[in-house]
């Protein structure tokens, strides 16, 4: 007797068998390739962080101190907990929503301390993210390097944020203007002051996303950054003026940005 290939029973059995086979195949493939894929992602995170530090050829392990920022305080992340930090970096939604226990990377070279913060935001078509490296100066905080990537910005336009050409423009930009407001942005029509960089022609929406990303992501670290900045200032002031211990402590407690 020939099987009726269009009977309900045949179709149900056919689909069940098909789904089981396909499901098993894909599950096997996903599990067998997962280790390799995770290693790619972890490696990319480390390379991006080192690129932001401006040390693309250096090895992440050993030279970078991983930390968390809680209420403006820096605490070192022990080796056992580092995996959780990288997982958070890979989860852009959670990273964007995080308000405390913020990941941060510290590297000291030739007496200069630099910090790298993760940044996340939205471009025109999807997520944009990256790492920005900051360094304290006497009266401000400057960007020493930035690495950005995107999920699906327009190639040749918004996607240019992932190129060195755009990223190099950020180096040396001071975060805060004379009034103490966050001032770094990609400016349509070309940079108009020393805090701004040229926006990408045809990529305005992506650049707006970059601006919002920088302001909100770096803003979350502001209490820590300002605190560190105040310390640098206080140290300088202390070296110049103070002779007693008390006034130095006062200087540290005092808010900054008063001299302009």
């Amino acid at each position: 007797m020939a099987i009726n290939k269009n009977s309900n029973g045949y179709i149900i059995i056919y689909t069940v068998v098909m789904v089981v086979i396909v499901g098993a195949l894909l599950a096997f493939l996903a599990t067998s390739l997962k280790g390799k894929q995770d290693a790619n992602v972890l490696n990319e995170q480390k390379v991006s962080i080192m690129k932001a530090f401006g040390e693309a050829d250096a090895n992440f392990d050993g030279v970078v101190t991983m930390g968390r920022i809680n209420g403006g305080e820096f605490t070192v992340v022990e080796k056992a907990d580092q995996q959780a930090v990288f997982e958070l970096l890979g989860n852009r939604k959670a990273l964007g929503e995080a308000t405390d226990n913020l990941p941060i990377f510290q590297m000291e070279k030739d007496g200069v301390v630099k910090y790298v913060l993760p940044i996340v935001g939205k471009g025109l078509w999807g997520d944009i993210w990256g790492y920005v490296s900051l360094q304290q100066t006497e009266d401000n905080i400057i960007i020493t390097g930035i690495v950005m990537d995107h999920a699906g910005e327009t190639p040749g336009l918004g996607a240019e944020i992932a190129t060195a050409k755009v990223q190099d423009m950020f180096a040396g930009k001071a975060l805060y203007d004379a009034t103490g407001a966050f001032a770094v942005r990609m400016q349509k029509g070309g940079a108009k002051n020393e805090h701004q960089v040229d926006a990408i022609t045809g990529g305005t929406k992506t650049c707006d996303g970059v601006n919002a990303m920088l302001e909100t992501s770096i803003g979350k670290y502001e209490s820590f950054l300002r605190g560190a900045e105040a310390e640098v200032e206080a140290d300088t002031a202390a070296a110049e003026e103070c002779t007693c211990g008390e006034c130095c402590e006062e200087e540290i407690v005092e808010p900054i940005n008063e001299e302009e």
């Binding site: 290939k5 269009n6 045949y10 179709i11 056919y14 689909t15 098909m18």
Partner: peptide, 10 residues
């Protein structure tokens, strides 16, 4: 062996 009714799904 393909049931023609569900061939697009397959």
């Amino acid at each position: 062996g393909l049931p023609s009714r569900i061939r697009i799904i397959v």
